[in-house]
């Protein structure tokens, strides 16, 4: 049964994020035209990294359960971390934690325990600012991802299979990305094939669709293409997804349209998670 390998410091796994930084990302985001798609991409990648770091955090340190890479694709393509991580393809998660570009303070509303809401200040680390420039060489990005992931698997052959998350508006300008996506997904550790999930941030005003099991209700051809490129959720992830309130079937795929993919971090199993921990 695949996708059961333990994720530990001795047997880490890998997360590789591909972020679309093309000129089309300047266009307004469908659900909130006051924001650009590039803002949505920056927000998504920062929140995914933040949640992944928090998932691996214990008191006094972050455990290197994952190696993390971010590839940008657009006018310039390649490793996209800045600062002291610049140029590096895969970085232990503890170094990601230690090196955000800045940590902003934001406020959020939380329950006050007496039926009301209070504002609470929370720290929000920022690794990436919005970028929108040039074409959308998604095929090239998927091919580079394949090289990076292949290298990781050769060093960690028994790892929980690497997860690649592509955040895009779906409009590739260097060909049909289906082939490179399949090539990437054909890589495997002894525990299963590489998982490719897609977050589609679109100018289309259609409502969010999270983890669908068919492309029937998807609003356009880009969404259908990205759905088709996305891996099916492994059985154990479906279990977590069901606990999070998603209805799943064998065909449920790691695809989100105009929505929130951060829940994927909660589908990861790195140890006992209390059911009443929220």
């Amino acid at each position: 049964m695949p996708y059961i390998a333990e994720i530990s410091r001795a047997n880490p796994s890998c997360f590789l994020f591909l972020i679309d930084q093309s000129g089309s990302m300047r266009d307004p985001f469908g659900l909130d035209p006051s924001r650009r798609k590039a803002d949505g991409v920056a927000d998504a990648i920062n929140r995914l990294l933040q949640n992944l770091v928090i998932k691996c955090a214990k008191a006094e340190g972050v455990r290197d359960y994952y190696y993390v890479g971010v590839l940008g694709y657009g006018h310039r393509s390649g490793p996209a971390f800045g600062g002291s991580l610049a140029g590096r393809e895969l970085v232990p998660i503890s170094e990601v934690a230690a090196n955000p570009a800045r940590v902003e303070e934001r406020t959020r509303k939380v329950e006050d325990g007496a039926g009301g809401l209070v504002e609470q200040k929370v720290k929000f680390p920022v690794w990436f600012d919005p970028v929108a420039n040039g074409g959308t060489p998604m095929c090239n990005a998927l091919s580079r991802a394949k090289d990076i992931v292949r290298g990781f698997i050769s060093q960690h052959p028994d790892c929980f299979p690497p997860i690649v998350i592509n955040i895009t508006d779906g409009e590739a300008t260097d060909g049909n990305p289906q082939g490179p996506a399949q090539d990437l997904q054909s890589l495997a550790s002894t525990d299963g094939n590489v998982l490719l999930f897609n977050l589609h941030l679109s100018s289309n005003k259609a409502a969010p669709i999270e983890f669908p099991d068919s492309d029937e209700n998807l609003p356009d051809s880009y969404a259908k293409l990205l759905f088709g490129m996305s891996s099916r959720l492994p059985e154990y992830m479906r279990g977590f997804a069901e606990e999070e309130g998603y209805k799943t079937t064998e065909n449920t795929r790691g695809f989100v349209f105009n929505g929130d993919l951060v829940s994927v971090i909660r589908f990861l199993d790195i140890g006992t998670r209390p059911a009443n921990l929220r």
Binding site: Q50, V53, I54, A57, A59, E60, A97, N276, L277, R278
Partner: peptide, 14 residues
């Protein structure tokens, strides 16, 4: 305490 510890500290120990 670092930013990544804060959510866990707020959530409590289990």
């Amino acid at each position: 305490v670092q930013w990544y510890e804060e959510p866990g500290l707020q959530a409590g120990a289990y």
